[in-house]
């Protein structure tokens, strides 16, 4: 069962999107922005608000890479894996990140950094690119990545 405060907040989010056609994705984005993930306890609330089955909501949540079933670490590092970044050393950059953090893709380090792959940030003319806690960086080498993690306290 969801906590009462959680129930109230989810109800408010659904209310804010009431009358909007096809509102599930905007609602899920709002729920994740609120709680840092999409808590499984909230799925029945969303299903009821949108008059769909819990299975349908679960299906949508699990389809999209952005939606998390559990909270991420304090920091989220997304490194581009796509071809343009590969052409400029993204594979080595990702390997260095994994080694430094001691995790594989989707893992969270002891220091609280969640490492995610991303397929293109649209900075392909200044590759390789990454996003740390929502901030984009381009032409990143291993040394710069280390500085960025240190600056973030990660």
């Amino acid at each position: 069962m969801p906590e009462p405060s959680q129930t109230n907040r989810v109800a408010e989010i659904c209310q804010a999107h009431a009358g909007r056609e096809g509102a599930l994705l905007p609602i899920l984005h709002a729920v994740q922005a609120e709680f840092g993930h999409v808590p499984s306890e909230t799925l029945p609330l969303l299903a009821k608000a949108l008059a769909v089955t819990v299975a349908e909501v679960q299906g949508v949540v699990s389809f999209y890479h952005d939606f998390r079933a559990a909270p991420a670490g304090r920091h989220v590092l997304k490194i581009c894996r796509a071809e343009a970044c590969q052409a400029m050393g993204a594979v080595a950059l990702a390997e260095a990140a994994k080694a430094r953090l001691g995790v594989d893709w989707h893992g969270t380090s002891a220091g609280g950094v969640t490492l995610e792959p991303v397929f293109c940030l649209g900075l392909c003319a200044a590759a390789p690119a990454l996003m740390l806690n929502g901030v984009l960086a381009a032409r990143v080498d291993v040394a710069r990545l280390g500085e960025m993690l240190a600056e973030a306290g990660a």
């Binding site: 796509a82 071809e83 397929f119 293109c120 649209g122 900075l123 392909c124």
Partner: peptide, 10 residues
């Protein structure tokens, strides 16, 4: 615009 190498839309 998800294609690697594309950024014109952005």
């Amino acid at each position: 615009e998800g294609d690697s190498g594309s950024f014109a839309d952005r």
